[in-house]
Computed example of a mutant assay.
Amino acid sequence: MMKTDGLKEFIAGNADTYLFGGPKLTPHIEVKMCFGQNGYDFELAATEDGFFLINNEKRHYYPYNATKDLGSGNFNPELLNDRHGSVMNTEHNASCYTYNAITSWKIYHFHDTSKEAGMRRYNDQAHGAKLFMDGSNIAPFLLNVKKSNIDAYNEMINALRLVIPFFDDFILEPNDNEKLRLNWRQKGLQDYPMRPTLLSDGSIRFVCLAAALLQPEPPTTIIIDEPELGLHPGALAILAELIEDASRRTQVIISTQSPALIDHFGIEDVITVNRKNGASIFKRLDEKDFNVWLEEYSVGELWIKDVIPGGYSRRPCS
């Protein structure tokens, strides 16, 4: 939605498939979001030709109780036009803040670690400003962090050494075509550079996870799908520490199937997803509901034993 005709391109004439049970059962999708002192609401209603119209679009600035109705019947959000106001603490500035927050969100999905995956291949040095969602530009990104924020880069290296004990450092040197890949050195073999193909799937995936969670200028929301895949059980504790550290600086949402990973978090950090009457219901757990159980069992064990709703034996949605 946050680019001209972006919603139309994404839906591609298949709006009905996004409506639960079709448009007769679900006439529209209603969205309400809060960004600290700002808010943004809208509805998506399917047209006959399978696209979405944006209706009842509003944005809010709560300290002044200021709400602006941005209109209805548009294929592009009016927020794109309203955001150009620049006066601080006014209705216009709320649109700019909301737009920047939404466009900053990053979804990371580091599942593809094959030989053909971008994270193992050469990438253009110029593509290092932001980490791509699949980690395909990991080498240029690390080089950019190393040049601009050596402390953040060293944090990443230290985290990797905890998980990969034989790892020393990366060799981030562009070739004559200004391209580079994730070459690295092993401890004790300073004169024998290693290629990215010599990193295991779990190791190179953890490189991307550390880069995403320790990046010096994180997006307003980081979303990572199943970060536990391929990781050694001992690495999960380090991953959990990185997630907690990142959550102090920005919003972090993790989708996981791992009881071992959630063992490293408090029960109130967990949101379960269950189906009720065909719909997905998201619920944050409350510690007081599990106090007696937690005296003897960990959070992950309660999940496996099906004490936590959406338990492991029923294969939870996330």
Rank of each mutant, 00 (worst) to 15 (best):
residue 5 D to I: 02
residue 5 D to T: 11
residue 6 G to K: 11
residue 6 G to I: 04
residue 6 G to S: 14
residue 7 L to Y: 02
residue 7 L to K: 04
residue 7 L to M: 14
residue 7 L to C: 11
residue 8 K to H: 10
residue 8 K to V: 10
residue 9 E to F: 12
residue 11 I to M: 06
residue 11 I to W: 00
residue 12 A to G: 10
residue 13 G to D: 15
residue 13 G to R: 11
residue 13 G to L: 12
residue 14 N to A: 15
residue 14 N to S: 15
residue 14 N to E: 15
residue 15 A to C: 13
residue 16 D to Y: 11
residue 16 D to Q: 13
residue 16 D to R: 06
residue 17 T to K: 01
residue 17 T to W: 00
residue 17 T to P: 00
residue 18 Y to Q: 02
residue 18 Y to I: 00
residue 18 Y to V: 00
residue 19 L to I: 12
residue 20 F to Y: 13
residue 20 F to C: 02
residue 21 G to S: 12
residue 21 G to L: 09
residue 21 G to P: 07
residue 21 G to N: 12
residue 22 G to D: 03
residue 22 G to H: 07
residue 23 P to R: 03
residue 23 P to L: 04
residue 23 P to S: 08
residue 23 P to K: 05
residue 24 K to S: 12
residue 24 K to V: 03
residue 24 K to H: 06
residue 25 L to G: 06
residue 25 L to I: 10
residue 25 L to Q: 14
residue 26 T to V: 05
residue 27 P to Q: 14
residue 27 P to M: 09
residue 28 H to R: 12
residue 29 I to M: 13
residue 29 I to W: 06
residue 29 I to V: 14
residue 30 E to A: 14
residue 30 E to L: 09
residue 30 E to V: 12
residue 30 E to I: 09
residue 31 V to G: 06
residue 32 K to P: 00
residue 32 K to S: 13
residue 33 M to H: 08
residue 34 C to Y: 04
residue 34 C to T: 13
residue 34 C to N: 13
residue 35 F to C: 10
residue 35 F to K: 09
residue 35 F to T: 11
residue 36 G to E: 12
residue 36 G to T: 11
residue 37 Q to C: 05
residue 38 N to K: 08
residue 38 N to H: 15
residue 39 G to C: 04
residue 40 Y to V: 05
residue 40 Y to T: 07
residue 40 Y to E: 05
residue 41 D to E: 13
residue 41 D to T: 05
residue 41 D to C: 03
residue 41 D to K: 02
residue 42 F to K: 01
residue 43 E to H: 11
residue 44 L to K: 01
residue 44 L to T: 04
residue 44 L to S: 02
residue 45 A to L: 03
residue 45 A to V: 06
residue 45 A to C: 07
residue 45 A to H: 04
residue 46 A to T: 05
residue 46 A to C: 10
residue 46 A to F: 01
residue 47 T to M: 06
residue 47 T to A: 08
residue 47 T to N: 11
residue 47 T to L: 06
residue 47 T to W: 07
